[in-house]
Amino acid sequence: MKLTTLTIASAIALTAAVPAFAQTTSAKAGAELTVRTDPTIAAPITGVLALNEEVTIEGCLEDVSWCKVTAADAEGWASGQYLYVEDNANAVPLVDMAGNPEELVIITQTEEGVSQGDQNGAAVATATVGALTAFALGGPVGAIVASGIAGTAVGAAAVEPTPDTLTYVAANPVDTVYLDGEVVVGAIVPAEITTFEVPQPEYRYLNVNNLPVLVDAETGTIVQIIR
């Protein structure tokens, strides 16, 4: 991915696809969502958005894979896949608007230099071994956002991890595995990725994109991010 000096290419005007959102600059997080310094899964973490937390959109990459956001306690880049806007009771994922650049503030590329995000992205490109996939129905955003509107994260742990499990994970760090896509509760780790035992047999753990996570031992679904 090339990322260079950022410029705003167009103003927000969501009238083409969703008239109710004209001049909207805010969205909500459809999952507990990591905010990073640059638009890449390897970038340092600056904060975490709570489920349904409102953010101000400063701009998005053209494919809306990442958006620059500002929230109460976090500022940086968040995965556009898990950001949505509301139209009455309906959630409209930002990625649904990616086909028409007139509908969002688009952050474009220039040729003035390469940012740290480029360097991080280049390092990850050679190490990425798979992709996180959505849990359940409706695709990545549909599943997560639908759960977010309901107030319950899809794929959350049915049984709370015990203190022994959390202590074990902290005391036994493992190398990170880089997977395309942001780490959220409900995403599924590919079956071919190695996971590790914890004291609770219903769970296993691994480190994805520099975040330790517990997964369901049978399905590989992320049930908790250990921060």
Rank of each mutant, 00 (worst) to 15 (best):
V184L: 06
V95C: 09
L3R: 15
E218P: 01
P161F: 08
P173Y: 13
T5W: 12
M1Q: 12
V85L: 05
I106H: 00
A122C: 10
L214C: 01
L132C: 12
A123W: 15
V95K: 10
S79V: 03
A29P: 00
V189G: 02
T126L: 12
L137S: 08
V185P: 01
L3D: 15
G76M: 04
I41E: 11
G130A: 02
I222H: 06
A153S: 11
E58G: 12
F135T: 14
V141H: 14
R36G: 07
I8F: 13
P93H: 01
S65Y: 10
V18Q: 02
C67F: 04
T152W: 06
A17E: 11
T25D: 09
D180G: 09
P19C: 03
A78W: 01
I225E: 06
I45M: 10
V18D: 02
A31I: 05
T167M: 10
V215C: 13
G80K: 06
I45S: 10
K2L: 14
I8N: 10
S10G: 12
G142E: 00
A50E: 07
L33G: 01
A31G: 01
C60L: 02
Y168I: 08
F135G: 15
A191V: 10
D175F: 04
G138M: 01
R36M: 08
A42K: 10
V92D: 03
G181R: 01
E53V: 12
K68I: 03
T5S: 15
E197N: 02
V48K: 00
K28T: 09
T221A: 08
V215I: 15
G186D: 05
A134M: 03
E160Y: 06
T133N: 11
T162N: 09
V154N: 10
A27N: 07
A50D: 03
A153W: 02
Q116M: 13
V129Q: 15
K68G: 04
I41Q: 04
R204G: 03
I45H: 00
A22L: 00
T128A: 11
T194W: 02
E202V: 13
G186C: 05
D164Y: 09
T37R: 14
N210V: 04
L6Q: 14
V159K: 05
P173I: 09
G220R: 09
D180Y: 07
A134D: 05
V213N: 07
A127S: 11
P199L: 10
R227L: 11
I188K: 11
I106T: 10
G59W: 05
A157Y: 14
I107H: 09
T7H: 06
E111A: 14
I57K: 00
V213P: 11
G220D: 05
F196H: 15
N120Y: 15
V154L: 13
V145R: 03
K68A: 07
V145F: 06
T176I: 13
T167G: 12
